[in-house]
């Protein structure tokens, strides 16, 4: 009897993983928690409100669009929660709440559900949400609030506006002052910036958790950050302080660990991942060094997302045993 149970004859696949979409998404949410806590500490209760509005709008938008399109519901897999969290992490604390909801709706409805829901989006939904908001409300999206100003400021919404350290370090070359933040402050996230991008330690902690749980492979984050580091080292003529500010400033850590590693919009093969991450790094550095914008992580990830099908095609592994001569024929098929 026991033997019979072990000898099940069925069509492949025979080996199944116990991983579920929901389990993976829960792991990502756990990995985002340190950054979430850091954002609330540095930017106050309003950060939590923005995160709740963003997550709430994403989940409601996903529920309603699936309902209208008469498709099975997918809110149970928590992917909308992650989109909402990542979108909120990409927004400044002073932004109006209806703008947050608008970005969430664009992310879920236009980018994700119009293209078929989870696993079908051609670019990262949260990043498009951010880019749409950045193009629509340039002033509101680049109004930075100094950390902890929510404690001593009378008008909590206004806070104290402050330049982002990345803008300062770029202005340095043109005769500006050094960023007010020291490198140690940059590391713990004591700086102006988007909600979730400031605390590098919390983000790296989340990244290590994801890698340890084998949710993401370290290839993309390491290559991405490494490429930026090499280019910035050359651009800064070996100036390590400049390099450190570039790596810790802006949304590089958030983008490299949580956005560029999105399953749907990053390549599968190892070679493909390397090409993808190097492309992200080069574009980010080029936008930061030569572009009009101080920050280029979101645009570079989106551009590389669009290139992923081509990268996949170029790095498609050869079927085992295919002789060299037939390689072209196999590709043609």
């Amino acid at each position: 009897m026991t033997l019979n149970n072990k000898l099940v004859v069925s069509a492949s696949p025979h080996a199944r993983s116990h991983e579920t979409v929901r389990g993976i998404m829960l792991d990502v949410i756990i990995a985002l928690v340190p950054a979430l806590i850091a954002s609330v500490i540095f930017f106050g209760p309003r950060a939590l409100i923005i995160e709740c509005v963003s997550v709430g709008s994403c989940v409601i938008a996903e529920y309603l669009s699936r309902l209208i399109m008469k498709r099975p519901h997918t809110i149970g897999d928590f992917s909308a929660v992650i989109t909402g969290l990542l979108l909120a992490f990409n927004l400044p604390v002073s932004i109006e709440l209806w703008k947050v909801a608008l970005g969430a709706i664009v992310a879920i409805v236009v980018v994700k559900q119009f293209f078929g829901g989870i696993g079908q989006n051609f670019v990262n939904p949260a990043l498009i949400g951010r880019i749409v908001l950045l193009a629509s409300f340039p002033t509101a999206m680049s109004k930075w609030t100094a950390p902890l100003s929510w404690l001593n400021s009378v008008s909590k919404l206004e806070g104290i506006t402050s330049a982002s350290p990345l803008a300062s370090i770029h202005a340095l070359a043109k005769g500006g002052a050094m960023p007010v933040e020291t490198l140690k402050e940059m590391l713990i996230g004591w700086r102006a910036g988007c909600l979730g991008e400031t605390c590098a330690i919390a983000l790296i902690l989340g990244g290590i958790y994801l890698i340890a749980r084998k949710v993401i492979s370290p290839t993309i984050p390491l290559t991405y950050v490494g490429t930026v580091a090499v280019i910035m080292l050359i651009a800064g003529k070996g100036n390590l302080t400049f390099l450190a500010y570039e790596l810790l400033g802006g949304g590089l850590m958030l983008g490299a660990i949580f956005m560029a590693t999105d399953y749907t919009t990053s390549p599968i093969t190892f070679k493909g991942k390397i090409i993808f991450a190097v492309g992200c790094g080069v574009l980010t550095s080029l936008i930061r060094l030569f572009g009009n914008l101080p920050e280029g992580v979101s645009y570079s990830i989106i551009i590389m997302n669009i290139l992923v099908p081509l990268i996949e095609k170029a790095t498609m592994p050869k079927p085992f045993g295919t002789p060299k001569k037939e390689k072209k024929e196999a590709e043609a098929k």
Binding site: E96, V132, A135, S136, F137
Partner: peptide, 15 residues
């Protein structure tokens, strides 16, 4: 007072 600028830019046009 709060125009959603992207709609008069090219991407909004495509949307």
């Amino acid at each position: 007072s709060n125009p959603i600028l992207i709609f008069i830019l090219a991407p909004g046009g495509f949307f």
